[in-house]
Simulated scan of single mutants.
Amino acid sequence: MRLEVLLPFRVFLRKPEVSRIVAETAEGSFGMLPHRLDCVAALAPGILAFETPADGEVFIAVDQGVLVKTGLEVRVSVRQAMAGTDLARLRRTVEREFLALDEQARSLRTVMDKLETGFLSRLARLRQTLP
């Protein structure tokens, strides 16, 4: 199989000669071999594992996304992905990256709350001035 992992703004990974893939959905994990029927699956955040003769088993931490298998082509489209061959190191990297993203999300929510509060107060003042 040929595996392609796509991020919103770039191709994260292209691997030919993938012998098997294991992906996670909300219902659990499932495996794919080259002659599996075509399918589409909504991926849950977790680990996508695949194996090639050259690299052995490789793990990719993925955010939620979609997996599409057509023939021998498997395309995975996710928001974020990080690869590694050592699960412990990958876990530490994911924790560090997601903690940074969580902090950015909190900052963004604070800014959005301030903008919303300012907008609502201006709207209230405008309504008071109208007859």
Rank of each mutant, 00 (worst) to 15 (best):
V111M: 13
D55R: 01
M82Q: 04
Q80V: 13
L120K: 05
L123W: 02
P131G: 14
G71L: 03
M32L: 14
L13I: 05
L101I: 06
E24I: 03
V62E: 11
L126C: 12
A49V: 00
Q104T: 01
P16F: 05
Q128D: 15
V58P: 15
L43I: 05
G31A: 02
E27C: 02
L33W: 00
F119P: 02
T85R: 15
F50G: 04
Q128M: 06
A49N: 00
P53I: 11
L115N: 09
V22H: 12
L126A: 15
G46W: 07
L99C: 12
V18Y: 12
G31N: 03
I21R: 07
L3S: 04
V62S: 12
R92W: 10
K114G: 12
E24Q: 06
V40M: 14
L13F: 06
V94T: 08
E17M: 07
G118L: 11
G84P: 09
G118F: 05
R14I: 13
A23G: 01
Q80D: 15
E103I: 01
G84T: 12
T70Q: 07
A105E: 07
I47P: 10
L115S: 12
E17W: 03
V40L: 14
L48S: 07
L120C: 02
T117Q: 06
P45N: 09
V66N: 13
E57M: 15
C39I: 10
E73Y: 13
S121W: 01
E57D: 07
A88V: 12
P16R: 02
V94W: 11
R36L: 02
R125V: 11
G56D: 08
L108S: 08
V78K: 03
E95A: 13
L123D: 08
E95T: 11
A81I: 01
S77P: 03
A54C: 01
E4V: 15
A44I: 08
R14V: 15
M82K: 03
R20P: 00
R125E: 15
E4G: 10
L101K: 11
F98K: 13
E24T: 04
R122M: 08
Q128W: 07
S121C: 00
S29I: 03
I60P: 04
L72A: 04
L3N: 04
P53A: 10
V18Q: 09
L126D: 14
A54K: 11
F50A: 00
G46T: 09
R127I: 10
L72G: 03
L87F: 03
M112W: 10
D102E: 09
M112N: 14
M112T: 14
L120D: 05
V40C: 08
R92T: 09
L130M: 15
K15Y: 04
V68L: 11
F59Q: 11
F30L: 01
L101C: 07
K69R: 10
S29G: 00
L3D: 04
T93P: 05
G71W: 00
P45K: 05
M82L: 07
Q104L: 06
